[in-house]
Design a protein around this nucleic acid. Structure first.
Lengths: 191, 191
DNA sequence: CCTACCGATCGGTAGG
DNA sequence: CCTACCGATCGGTAGG
């Protein structure tokens, strides 16, 4: 029975602690030694589970990126553009809230990825953005969305959604938040 | 004539290079040695101008925070809540675009400020947020803004505005961007 | 997963 | 603003 306690392996525990630490201090400000201590092992033992410090970051960013993409794929199954977009927004918010630490690490620390991993990450992000923009364009063509630059539109809205992790600390419930945000995105603040 | 060439002192040059470097690599990922090299001096000479590496970050964050506050103070002079808010949004966007590097450093690296400077920064930010929320509340009372939690409203909108630095690379002109954003914030994406 | 250890680099000081 | 230098800490390897 190889290293599974309560269903969590030592590797999982390292990843969990790394996610918290990278969020609090940043990737460059986090040391392998401190991470090892939090995971309850000696520093060199980290390298039994990961090839390098950067390998840990790749793991966090990769897993998170795939989760966002899965949500979008689900949203695309809706039949109408408006509902596709509403679902995409709602799932993006839900994923962000559920994995707040990992999402924050991904958005703040992806620039510390090595060349290959960074290219991979950028390609994934570009794919996500283009699929969002596709939905917006379909909505514009159907006459239900304002005609604006879809790149500006998608970036503006999704940076607002990603910003949630920086300020949301339970002021309202998650469902209320998702609801308020959908209203704001679709109708703005004007009464 | 103490160290002014073309109106820029060596201290200004260090700050300029530090802003670029902190944005690209993050504060913790930037070394005093590399910064000195870019500024054209030896590493220890940095300490003739700044008490510490953190002192440089304080300088960048402090100056940037004061610039945002000045914009808000100007916006508050408008007579009606709607115009106060529109002006606050426009000036926030303009300041963000004009000082993109410094704004990015402030939002990404403030967590590396020391205890006193961090308290100071948080107090300034809280003040800014509360004054924005005050405008929103006045607009709601005047019946021109939707009744929603002003904390959620202001945070959502301003994180969208701050997000601009992460994606805007001249897709549309600055004036078009400010205009599109004002439309989105006030009327949403629905046609 | 540990002990022992390495070369490199870090922020910063002394003294001029 | 420079030369010379310091103690601390960094990511990572060897070998078991």
């Amino acid at each position: 029975m190889p290293s599974k306690k309560n269903g969590f392996s030592r590797k999982d525990e390292i990843l969990r602690q790394a996610t918290i630490m990278f969020r609090e201090r940043g990737y460059a400000g986090s040391s392998v030694r401190d991470l090892a201590m939090l995971a309850g092992i000696e520093a060199p033992s980290i390298y039994s589970h990961f090839k390098s410090k950067e390998d840990i970051l790749q793991n966090i960013c990769g897993k998170m990126a795939r989760t966002f993409t899965r949500g979008l794929t689900k949203a695309e199954k809706e039949s109408k553009p408006e509902q596709r977009f509403r679902t995409a927004v709602a799932l993006h918010v839900q994923t962000t809230l559920k994995y707040a630490d990992a999402a924050a690490v991904m958005w703040n620390e992806w620039k510390h990825l090595g060349d290959d991993a960074m290219e991979d990450f950028k390609a994934r992000r570009r794919n996500y953005e283009q699929r969002i923009q596709q939905i917006l364009i379909e909505g514009m063509d159907a006459g239900i969305f304002v005609k604006q630059d879809p790149i500006v539109l998608s970036n503006f809205i999704f940076s607002a959604l990603n910003g949630i992790i920086f300020w949301y600390h339970g002021e309202v419930t998650r469902d209320e938040l998702t609801d308020t945000i959908n209203k704001l995105v679709f109708d703005g603040i004007k009464k």
